[in-house]
Structures are given as C-alpha cells and as structure tokens.
Design a protein around this nucleic acid. Structure first.
Lengths: 158, 158
DNA sequence: CCAAGTTACATGACACGTCATCTACCAGCA
DNA sequence: TGCTGGTAGATGACGTGTCATGTAACTTGG
C-alpha cells in the first residue's frame, strides 16, 4: 500500500538541512585548505593526536575516537605521513600495530590552522544561532546519534 | 591578542552536529546504495530531472537546482550516463550545450529507491525529533544558508 | 603447544569532489 | 567581417572514501 512520505514541514526542514550541510562543509573545507593546507579530516586527526598523552595513539584508538572506518583511517594516515604531518613508531607491546605520532610540522600546522578555523565556524554557523537554537542542535544531534548507535549495534535480546 | 574560542555549549553542539552529520550521511548513503544501487548524489539528480517538464534539463539548470560545482556535475553526469541512468540530447537552441534526459532505467531506479530512502530518512532522523525541533532545524538551516549566500555573493556596494 | 578464531592494520580497485585549465560557441561592437 | 569577452561544458590530475580482501600477529580451547 501507499508509502508514507514526509510532511511538508519535514520536507522543508530536510531540504534546508541538506543544503546547509553541503554548503557549510564545503566552505569550511575550502577555508581550512586555503589558509593552512589542511583538510577537515587532517584537522580532526591532529586534534585527537595533540590531545593525547605524548602526542601519539594507536591507529585503533584514533579510529574509535574519530568514529571512522578502519580503511579510511589507514589511507588517510598514509597520506598524512607522506606529507610529514605524522610519523610511525614501532609498538613493542603488540607486533601487529604501531603508534602514530604528531610531528613538529603537524603541531605547527594545527596551531596555525586552529584560530582561523574556529573563527570560520563561528562566523558561518554560531553567529547565526541564538542560545536556544544551540541547545536544540546539541540535543537533537545527540538524540539522532543515540538512535544510530542502537540501530547499528542492536542490543542483545533477552 | 587571544583568539576567541567557542563556548562550552557551542563546542558540545558542534561536536554533536559533526558526529550526527557524518554518521547520518554515511548511513543514508549505505542504505540507498545497498537497496537500489544509487548514491545520494544520483538520487538528487534523478529527483530534479523527473520533476522537470519532459524529464530533461540543461546541465546549467541542474547545476543551479542542485547548487553543485560545475565540474562535479559534469563528472557525475558522465558516470550516470555510462550507467544508463541519463542520456544526452543535442540542444538546437544553443550549440554549446545539451539536454540531460532521464532514461527509463533512471525512472525505474528512482521509483524503486524513493520509498526506502524516505523511510530511512524518517527512521534515522525525523522519528527522533518533535515538531518544535523540526521547526528549529528549518529556521536555523535557512538562516545559515542565507548568511552563506551573502558571504559568497557580497552585495554590490552603494 | 598448536590449530582456529580474532584483532590490527594495509592495500588495490574504483567511485567521488575540487581545482585548474581547455574548447567551443554565443553576443556585442567596431 | 573580425575581435573581445563571456558562457556552456568537458577533462586531467589529484586527494579522498568505501568495499573487499589480504596478511601478520595475538589469543584461546583442547
């Protein structure tokens, strides 16, 4: 029988969301790329690494922190290593793995990129939201995320 | 002088938004791909084409409707043509251009993809929002979009 | 202690998006 | 008629993301 479509309000909201998402991501990437030569992905990786003790993490730790697919991370770390942003150290505990370490160049890159990026986030996004809207974004996004979590890792029955 | 960072509320909202955005897009793409062999981009193109009179549009019309970069559209149409989802017709009015037409295969593809996709959008997103949140999403997204528009196409001075 | 399963990570193939650049055509003007 | 500029669109190079698969090292029951 008939498919249930979206209501008019939902359609308008969905279109607006998709539009914002696409344009905003593109703009943020463009600004970051132009001002610092980093991509948003590079930025996220470097944030996690510089936050970590010793500036290094195992790839699987990075993977969980970033919620990336494993092969994406592997490819991306390879590229970042080629560009000198990160390096690898052998892992004595576990012969399969390695540590990923931020290099000095990596630290420099993110230190110089961060202020401009944060400014852009504020200029393009938060400057146009009031306090209530900020709260709604957080709650709504966390709600959707929670649903995605339970949908992907279904609770054990019983 | 000190860089102005984000407030705690803004940081939490931003992280939540980024997480939701990434996971949601990935899931929507995965579902669409698995159930119909289309990507979200294919879907958007086919929606615009089937909405148009005669099921055909000039590439530049598609470009404006989708708000895509020109080369992205060009590459994407090439791939969709290779897969038989769209075809090209000569444009008599303008020797430079052509019309992009949905093929029967394209119509079949989107007709079979749409119900499942809409269902997934509702299941993963709207089922977790109340009416007020839906309104906020629309308003907020449109506000950010408007700002992006004026930022990119600065008004003529005077 | 060893075979079987599991975990950590890499890799090749291929779709996708951006940038820079190129070609062909159209429109206005001398 | 030819020149100049703008518009429609394609293309190659290159970075990125996904899927499927491979491999080596760890772990665990017997």
């Amino acid at each position: 029988m008939g498919t249930i479509w979206l209501t008019d309000e939902q359609q308008r909201a969905w279109r607006a969301y998709l539009g914002m998402q696409a344009r905003l991501t593109a703009e943020l990437n463009r600004q970051l790329q132009a001002e610092s030569g980093l991509s948003l992905s590079d930025y996220d990786v470097l944030v996690k690494l510089t936050d970590a003790a010793g500036g290094r993490l195992r790839p699987y730790e990075l993977q969980r922190a970033l919620e990336w697919e494993q092969s994406r991370l592997s490819h991306h770390l390879g590229r970042m290593q080629r560009r000198g942003l990160v390096a690898r150290q052998d892992c004595d505990d576990d012969g399969r793995g390695s540590y990923i370490v931020v290099t000095d160049a990596g630290r420099d890159a993110i230190a110089s990129a961060a202020p401009g990026h944060v400014n852009t986030v504020r200029r393009l996004f938060f400057d146009h939201l009031d306090a209530e809207q900020v709260r709604v974004v957080e709650q709504l996004a966390n709600g959707v995320l929670a649903a995605l979590d339970t949908a992907e890792r279904p609770a054990a029955s019983g």
